[in-house]
């Protein structure tokens, strides 16, 4: 059984936000517009977090970190859901069952990474975008929680194709939209249980760290960064 994981090489990332846009389009995430943004209610499954660097005047600046759902092996969100609307599946993907979610937002408050999103309004798209929605991803109604799925629908498609050709799923056949898009090659994706996979190899790197490991959530998004910076988050 695979255990899907992502690697984000911060030394390669140019903060171009191509991954953010790719995710938005791939997953039918409604562009909420300026008004909702100002209210602090824009939805994005993958966002860039700005970390302030060199606060003591040495080398002031911002560092941007792409932040998808961590798909924790020990997710704090699935435990607290009163109706089992969010669960971790056998391949380590933390999924959300939209038709069951009651919108209590306990999972959003329990997640230390604040990556879960709530639909304050019904989703809307401006006129030309409505025709371009992905048929593979269901539209979320008003009042439920949604989140990054590691583009789970792509796994289903890739697995179906492999099964039709009577072979095993190969490394690289299942990639989330953000990974596929990244022009800088900063994102990698694969099976952490396969020691020969790219993510396993990169995960061994001395540059590798994970966000808030001390909380015991065992996130499956691994970051790579040179220097002392990484450990400070």
């Amino acid at each position: 059984m695979a255990r899907w994981a992502m690697v984000v090489d911060l030394d390669r990332c140019t903060a171009c936000q191509a991954c953010v846009v790719a995710c938005q389009v791939e997953n039918n995430v409604s562009p909420m517009g300026v008004e909702e943004s100002d209210k602090g209610r824009a939805i994005s499954w993958l966002r860039l977090v700005a970390f302030h660097e060199g606060e003591h005047g040495t080398r002031p600046g911002l560092r941007f970190v792409p932040l998808p759902c961590m798909h924790c092996d020990n997710p704090p969100c699935t435990k607290v859901c009163p109706v089992q609307a969010t669960q971790i599946d056998r391949e380590g993907l933390v999924a959300q069952v939209y038709p069951r979610c009651i919108g209590c937002r306990y999972c959003t408050t329990a997640c230390p990474y604040t990556v879960r999103q709530f639909n304050w309004k019904p989703p809307e798209w401006p006129e030309p975008m409505q025709t371009g929605l992905s048929p593979d991803v269901s539209i979320r109604p008003k009042g439920v929680v949604e989140k990054c799925t590691f583009c789970h629908h792509r796994l289903q498609r890739a697995r179906d194709e492999a099964r039709a050709e009577r072979r095993e799923l190969q490394e690289g056949e299942y990639l989330p939209a953000c990974v596929e898009t990244c022009p800088a090659g900063a994102l990698a994706f694969g099976d952490l249980d396969d020691p020969r996979s790219e993510v396993s190899r990169l995960g061994e790197s001395p540059r590798a760290f994970r966000l808030m490991e001390e909380l015991g959530t065992e996130p499956k998004v691994i970051y790579l960064s040179k220097g002392e910076w990484g450990g400070e988050i």
Partner: peptide, 17 residues
């Protein structure tokens, strides 16, 4: 967010919550 689904608490209870 979805008061119409409040009874899911009885239909699909998660006693770890």
């Amino acid at each position: 967010g979805r008061p119409d689904r409040a009874l899911n608490v009885l239909k699909h209870p998660n006693f770890r919550s």
